[in-house]
Design a protein around this nucleic acid. Structure first.
Lengths: 187, 187
DNA sequence: CTGCACATTTACCGATCGGTACACCCGAAC
DNA sequence: GTTCGGGTGTACCGATCGGTAAATGTGCAG
């Protein structure tokens, strides 16, 4: 099986896991949804957990690339880009397939802090934090680390509430809160 | 079986679901952990879903009662109580059994917006929002509804990050952000 | 066409899933 | 002591779980 077939498998598995949850869908269901036979799947991945970890790696790359691109497209200055993070979020929340954050869900189902899936989820959030910090520093924030952590808190909260309550309100509230926190940090 | 036995079952099932996840633990494992036989469990609850819904009702009551009591004990004025929400959160995060929010996890595993479990999770967050709003209004906030939504966003984000990164930092960051948002609302 | 290598399908493994049928136990009524 | 009824453990149901072995294609070198 070619490498592109493997990528295709991971792509489709990502969609299936995102839609159904990790425990909720089995390897048989996955085989049906991806169009790849079980045997072929086990050629590429030793266990279901390995497949999940591969989908998380793909999702991390996908999401952060998408966010950076959208933020760069929406605003020019570091300060405006910090704020436009929440405009990008609003766009994401509006997608009909939106079902919260893959990594929040992953860490909900694999809660042991030492579990590889939990670790991968924590790492994704850490990389986002690093991105926020870079923008905050470039913008000249009083305490870039503190502001980045606050904005990340708002982002995660907005995702949770967009999933449970209203997507539009969740993004707008987080954005207005971010604006206030940024002003407080001198931006 | 007495009514108190039923309560005991729900109590123990709550712990088991919180520790393991909803899909991850089966009715056999639940019977073992609660000390109640499968037959007895099915006397009280027609399906696993019904049992889950009962545990969520208990958890909603437990958590909101606890929060209100802690907030009342920690501060006197409505303004100080708004802030002390995040001190109470910090206490919660420090508990060794802390494993994120039961309702975030529930909505992660049952994502369909119409699913009863998802609906129950959304309702829990709505009731928290109502509580926040009452405090914000009593404190004389400029826009109590908006402030309450912002603080709820911070709370949910703090829970997610306390679970994935550092509990202590997550609570402190949310608290400092809340302080700034409250000042901005005239408090 | 034959023979070989590889990919895919199919059937299966023991364990566990949510849920149920039933034999059993034990105290109360007589 | 006998009978009865409600709560109990146990054994079981078909389906599905994660994972595997072997049969069945399929394409290509000779």
């Amino acid at each position: 099986m070619s490498a592109s077939k493997r990528d295709e498998l991971v792509q489709n598995a990502l969609k299936a896991f995102y839609r159904s949850g990790f425990h909720a869908i089995g390897m048989d269901g996955l085989a049906k949804e991806t169009g790849v036979s079980k045997t072929a799947m086990y050629k590429h991945f030793r266990t279901k957990e390995d497949l999940i970890l591969a989908t998380l790696r793909l999702r991390d790359e996908q999401f952060r690339n998408w966010l950076v691109r959208r933020v760069e497209a929406l605003a020019e200055t570091p300060r405006d880009r910090l704020l436009s993070i929440f405009d990008a979020l609003a766009e994401w929340f509006r997608e009909p397939e939106f079902r919260s954050c893959m990594f929040i869900k992953a860490s909900s189902e694999y809660q042991d802090r030492n579990h590889p899936i939990h670790v991968a989820s924590a790492e994704h959030k850490r990389l986002l934090l690093v991105y926020f910090e870079g923008l905050a520093r470039a913008a000249g924030a009083a305490s870039p680390e503190a502001l980045a952590r606050q904005l990340l808190t708002l982002k995660e909260g907005a995702i949770v509430l967009a999933h449970l309550h209203d997507p539009e309100t969740a993004a707008a509230d987080a954005r207005s809160a971010a604006h206030i926190l940024m002003k407080n940090a001198g931006l």
